[in-house]
């Protein structure tokens, strides 16, 4: 896969939201929601974006679908630079790029029937369907595991899991190439989560879809992704394929995140020494200088406060932005510092 051109390529993308004050809206600062991130998404793969709240993962999703305009950097979709394209020129591209939202309660219009919701993309894009829109919508409803006869029902008549399926049906209507799923299962019950995760995987195989899955749940992301990018305060701190990220995580933050996930095994809790991170994520309004994780990192030294570590290749397909990565094969010194918080 990786020999080909990426389907989506993001280069040094930034989004700073201005903070204004006073009558004349003088800008007094900026929330650096996304602060220079680069990644590629190849056809047919699933890239997972994980991080805690406020790390900029949702903003990233909204930027690549161009629901927001980046303040700097480039977004290239299928070879076209879309970073500052106007709405008119974006519209035809929206067919190829769709989004699944987190909350299946607020992302469906309660006054529209399922038929109207799933059929809207055809109407808006002016797409002709062979046997009429109704038939096309019913086919898609069937594809996502809903009863096609529920065409005339309203969203409130469905359960959370079914609503999420309606949302997925809507994104699939125009046969997109890239789907950005922002927390697609976090609002659902455990047993329903698994159904939707399986559905997303089946659809990917069947329709040759490419996914960017944004989630805070590391186990869901591991299950669904081929590659995973970990974000912290607007930066990507580590990118790797799923296997090496979860078996040899290099960035201290990734390590801390993984050790924080509660393990559903009562025996494990007793003999596990967890990395305890101190404090909370700092505000993106005023992020720490240089390495943004240094305020909470147990390995931080002077250099971490002065020089920002670049996102560097440490192993095949494994990039890390850290001065003192763990498990790094090349660096023999300094990596076995005590893991105490």
């Amino acid at each position: 896969m990786s020999e080909n051109e990426p389907l989506l390529s993001v280069q040094n993308m930034e989004k700073h939201f201005p903070v204004t004050k006073g009558l004349f809206k003088r800008q007094v600062g900026a929330v650096k929601a996304v602060d220079g991130i680069s990644f590629d998404v190849f056809k047919g793969e699933t890239l997972g974006l994980v991080g805690e709240s406020g790390c900029g993962k949702s903003t990233t999703g909204r930027l690549v679908t161009r629901l927001l305009e980046p303040t700097a950097g480039k977004i290239v979709f299928e070879g076209q630079d879309i970073s500052h394209m106007g709405q008119g020129r974006l519209r035809p591209l929206r067919r190829d790029m769709q989004m699944i939202f987190q909350d299946p309660y607020s992302s469906l219009n309660p006054r529209h029937t399922v038929g109207a919701i799933v059929g809207a993309p055809y109407r808006i894009q002016g797409v002709k369907t062979e046997n009429g829109v109704k038939k096309a919508v019913q086919d898609i409803l069937e594809l996502v595991g809903l009863n096609p006869e529920h065409y005339n029902r309203y969203p409130h008549e469905f359960s959370g899991g079914q609503r999420q399926r309606i949302g997925i049906a809507r994104t699939l209507a125009l046969k997109p190439k890239l789907i950005i799923a922002d927390e697609p299962v976090s609002a659902l019950d455990v047993s329903i989560q698994a159904q939707v995760v399986n559905l997303l995987e089946d659809l990917q195989k069947e329709l040759d879809l490419t996914y960017v899955v944004i989630a805070h749940d590391l186990s869901v992301v591991r299950h669904i992704s081929d590659r995973v990018a970990v974000m912290y305060l607007g930066k990507i701190v580590e990118v790797a394929d799923r296997k090496s990220l979860y078996s040899v995580p290099m960035h201290p933050y990734t390590n801390a995140l993984m050790s924080a996930v509660p393990v559903p095994d009562p025996k494990v809790r007793k003999d596990r020494d967890r990395i305890r991170l101190k404090g909370d994520v700092p505000s993106p309004l005023n992020p720490p200088p240089a390495c943004r994780f240094h305020t909470r990192c147990w390995k931080a030294q002077d250099i971490c406060k002065k020089v920002e570590p670049p996102l560097a290749q440490m192993a095949e397909g494994h990039q890390v932005a850290c001065h003192f990565p763990e498990n790094a094969p090349e660096l023999p010194a300094a990596e076995t510092a005590a893991k105490t918080g």
Binding site: Q162, L218, V220, P264, V268
Partner: peptide, 18 residues
Amino acid sequence: MPRLDREPTERLLPIKGS
């Protein structure tokens, strides 16, 4: 439930229905 403490499976085994 996908689990971090084990090797990932191909598929989850959900409960049908809601």
